[in-house]
Design a protein around this nucleic acid. Structure first.
Lengths: 229, 229
DNA sequence: CAGTGGTCTAGACCACAGT
DNA sequence: CTGTGGTCTAGACCACTGG
């Protein structure tokens, strides 16, 4: 039995229907969906609104609703595992810390938590073809990823995706500094070597899902970006 | 005479009301707005939906609607001059090199030039409130900016804008390394200090406009980004 | 012309917050 | 308890598009 909200049910129905269709293909009209699901038109519109704001559909007044031209191609909010796979490199990671902690004040704000909420802290050394690439600290609301610590996934973003919470956008801040001694040792670079750091707040729709800080080996890595106005 | 749609009128009313309020401040409740404007609740919700998706407001079921924690500003393809102005800082620059040169092979490709085309090379030391921030080398097709060298503008992107060629998108590559001796001296950092580098190819529509390489003082500067899927 | 999406009404019941 | 946002109904009129 479907315990879904109606507008969710309709949204997923249309999403499946449209999956893989060429841009410009007509989607069912709002009144068609009203008849098919026996709901009010506002409910159908609520479902289609979501798909439009996701960039799946486009509305054309007086004509209909159509599959949208594909969105922004490039990385967007990318996952380390995917970035490496795209280069044909096998990504590995070694868990250094996986714990349940009380959030700091800044985490509380960034993740939009309530005072008693706990966060999951996961620190990993990440490797490509067996060589250290970066150290990352990820912080996630415990309620967002129940059971994560009991069974650490191979890819955090894959895990979030399976929970329907893959980040849709992120705020990044990129900087450079010298490595701490601990970082230098883990990354196998000289003490005082250069690291490229990335602070990220990743969100799904309007909900913060992850805050992370990553330090990349400066001598090997760079961050590629595509910016649009 | 206001020819505004009701939901637009309500949206702008709330936007003004909330302008400058601290995050967490309560916005009018939906039923308040229904009374104030004499409209149906769906109409009010339509107005608030827009503000929520803009990140201006947050909804908290059972509690109310509140001013959202501010997002970082979207960057898009930003200009140094504009970035500084946004922070209330006076940007200056000191021209180190301004010349007409034959393009290297990689510039020829990146700027999509023909073999005999020349490029303008402009190197600047850029300062904020009188202190060095970065060194940038910009390369532009000569045909794109005739007369630039005869009258160097205060802001390159302003100049491009006045020619109708302001970059609409860019490919950036961000990395970290130690400064060269020359860079260290200009940036007033210790020899061997850290710099954050950005290689950019900026395009207007599908036409390459600029290739630049910039080295920022790593101890002071970071690059803020907004990524979307 | 009939069909589309855009806007809007005037209600309703629900789950949830805080008092 | 009251008030909040979340969902939903069953209509309505409009401007616009296409045939």
């Amino acid at each position: 039995m479907s315990r879904l909200l109606k507008h969710v049910e309709i949204r997923e129905y249309v999403r499946d229907l449209v999956q893989g269709s060429a841009p410009g293909t007509a989607a069912p009209s709002e009144r068609d969906l009203v008849d098919r699901f026996g709901v009010a038109r506002m409910t159908v519109r609520q479902a289609l609104d979501a798909l439009v704001s996701e960039g799946v559909l486009e509305r054309h007044p007086g004509r209909g609703t159509f599959v949208a031209v594909p969105r922004r191609l490039p990385t967007g909010v990318s996952s380390f595992t995917e970035d490496m796979a795209a280069k044909g490199i096998v990504a590995e990671s070694r868990t250094l810390v996986a714990e349940r902690v009380r959030p700091t004040e800044s985490l509380l704000v960034a993740l939009r938590l309530r005072p008693d909420d706990m966060v999951v802290h996961w620190r990993r050394l990440r490797l490509a073809d067996g060589r250290p690439v970066c150290i990352s600290d990820a912080f996630l609301p415990e309620t967002m990823v129940p059971g994560l610590l009991e069974k650490l996934p191979a890819s955090l973003y894959d895990d979030l995706a399976s929970r329907g919470r893959r980040p849709t956008w992120a705020e990044d801040d990129v900087a450079a500094r010298t490595a701490t001694d601990a970082e230098a040792e883990l990354l196998e670079i000289p003490v005082g070597g250069v690291v490229l750091t990335r602070s990220r707040r990743a969100l799904w729709r309007e909900t913060p899902v992850e805050v992370s800080r990553t330090a990349f080996r400066g001598d090997q890595h760079s961050i590629a970006l595509l910016l649009r106005n």
